[in-house]
Amino acid sequence: MSRTNVKQNLDARRVTQELFTLTYGAFVAQILNDYEHVDEVNKQLDKIGYNIGVRLIDDFLARNPNVGRCHDLRETADVLAKQGFKTYLGISPSITNWSPAGDEFSLLLDGNPLTEFVELPEGQGQKLSYNQMICGAIRGALEMVQLEVECRFVQDQLKGDNATELRVKFLKKLEDALPVGED
């Protein structure tokens, strides 16, 4: 196969970032319309992310056959930030703020494609966790490799903070892979 052919195949597997950003925006706007309470919206976004993460991990492992089992959380964090985020969102967050016990770390998101044109509405809207989908996706993906984690945003540039910081906390290793519902 010629070089151009390979390149074309790769190109066909990508879409414009703006299309993705605006599509997510349309989706969030619709959910905001459907629910009265912002907490409910955050929950929905988390659920959506979880569903995506559960399926995303298969794609990730299929594309990266060289990624083996991670031996500790530091390794997991490395793969997550340098390969996971890079492949699917095109950004490489930096890993910081390890807890002394080594079971919790932060990802600093630099230039998040999801929030490109976003401004949170006044009032209730300020409580919206716009990026919650990412948390759900991480939780879902790691659950499929038997790691239960808790994931939340502690700082958000949309809310006027200086950085967007995502905190990931390791809870436990799952012994049995439970079948996952469609929900």
Partner: peptide, 23 residues
């Protein structure tokens, strides 16, 4: 100009369809 992986978009779209379908 930046690009996003098609998988990410496809999964997001799939969630949009499922969300709408339930309503």
């Amino acid at each position: 100009k930046g690009d996003v992986n098609l998988t990410t978009f496809a999964l997001l779209f799939s969630e949009m369809v499922q969300y709408s379908q339930n309503r």
